[in-house]
Design a protein around this nucleic acid. Structure first.
Length: 255
DNA sequence: ATGGTAGAGAGTCTA
């Protein structure tokens, strides 16, 4: 069972890349972020023709999340329960015996801004919700664009990406550690200790060519699934394609 | 990095 996450940065633009990658990587479940599509425009017919079921929650221009699966999803949850949020950043569903939570975590703009404060509030609400989800669904997978690089191995230059910078500030990393403390484990780190492997490279300054990236696309597996996590990786190849997303697909293998 | 590029969509906003 291969489960992947990919911030596609506009599904309208990236649908051909997604279709190409789905056919060559053959995942079973895929969490998408930044679809930037209202639900009426989601390409569920095109994906169904290739054998994919889709559940999605989107909006124009910004945000938007979806879960694709070979097997039908059930018990779909849109948004964080009890947390009023206009932004379409969260979708959860049950697929087989797995509960899948797909997150497009708030970026945060800059440390100290209102958007940064919103990011920390948002992560706090996610924490409390996931505590409930874990009680109800021990087989929990939480994945997506976390917009947090867990530690200095996950950034190309820790001098730049320090406590003053979004994606690496102590408060953000502490919020991620609080999720780990619920009994969630970074699937990639269960299998790889080395640094310098990234999932996002800025479009600017030739970030990808110079491999100036961050690992911010994560898959967390619950205690109950930890032993079943058989491998993890990041597919750099789609980032080399013409007109790519700025993110690469990240995946784990379960069972 | 008060910069840079990409996407959406029509002037900026977000990342």
């Amino acid at each position: 069972m291969k489960i992947a996450s990919w911030n596609v940065n506009s599904l309208n633009v990236r649908l051909p890349h997604l279709q190409q990658w789905l056919s060559q990587a053959a995942p079973d479940i895929v969490a998408l972020q930044e679809t930037k599509l209202e639900d009426e425009r989601f390409p569920d017919d095109a994906l169904a023709a290739a054998g994919w079921r889709s559940v999605f929650s989107g909006q124009k221009t910004y945000n938007g999340v979806a879960i694709l699966s070979r097997e039908a999803a059930s018990d779909v949850q849109i948004g964080i329960p009890g947390f009023g949020d206009e932004q379409k950043r969260v979708i959860a569903a049950t697929v087989g015996d797995l509960r899948i939570v797909n997150l497009y975590v708030v970026n945060g703009q800059d440390v100290g801004t209102e958007k940064y404060a919103y990011k920390l509030r948002w992560l706090d609400a996610v924490h409390d919700w996931l505590a409930d989800e874990l009680r109800e669904h021990p087989n929990l997978v939480v994945l997506g664009d976390f917009n947090i690089a867990p530690d200095d191995r996950d950034v190309h230059d820790p001098e730049i990406w320090n406590d003053d910078h979004i994606l690496t500030s102590t408060a953000e990393r502490d919020a991620l550690k609080r999720l780990y403390a619920l009994g969630l484990h970074d699937g990639y780190r269960l299998h790889h200790d080395e640094g310098g492997v990234f999932s996002w490279w800025d479009y600017r300054q030739a970030g990808f060519r110079r491999d100036r990236g961050l690992r911010i696309d994560l898959t967390l597996v619950s205690d109950a699934l930890r032993g079943a996590c058989a491998g993890a990786g990041i597919d750099r190849e789609p980032r080399t394609w013409e007109r790519p997303s700025d993110h690469a697909p990240a995946w784990v293998e379960l069972g």
